[in-house]
């Protein structure tokens, strides 16, 4: 977990006017921070996957904690067919 980047993002969104400052001049806001060049580059890209990676999440890891397990279709036992009525036995015409 990248604490610095997490705190930066939370401050960016929760402090009044800060997100507007970022959108107006992202370079200035990032220069004032102590983020690494890689983190700054991820934020400037606007690419969610890169930001997640900079936060320390592997691709798909974000989903791991929320995905529902796919439900396996239940293996239903086939409904037993009604027993066929026995036809009256054919008598063999064959001569014994």
């Amino acid at each position: 977990m990248n604490i610095d980047l997490s705190n930066f993002l939370v401050d960016l969104v929760s402090q009044q006017g800060r997100i507007a400052d970022f959108l107006a001049d992202p370079g200035r806001v990032l220069d004032e921070s102590s983020l690494t060049a890689e983190e700054k580059s991820a934020l400037l890209s606007g690419d969610g996957a890169r930001i997640r990676k900079a936060l320390g999440l592997a691709a798909g890891e974000a989903a791991a904690s929320v995905l529902n397990k796919s439900k396996k279709p239940s293996k239903r036992k086939p409904t037993p067919k009604p027993a066929k009525k026995k036809k009256p036995g054919r008598k063999s015409n064959q001569k014994k």
Partner: peptide, 14 residues
Amino acid sequence: YLVTEPATETWVRR
């Protein structure tokens, strides 16, 4: 809580 990324976790803890 159960969230997907660390920034939301930081916020919830704050």
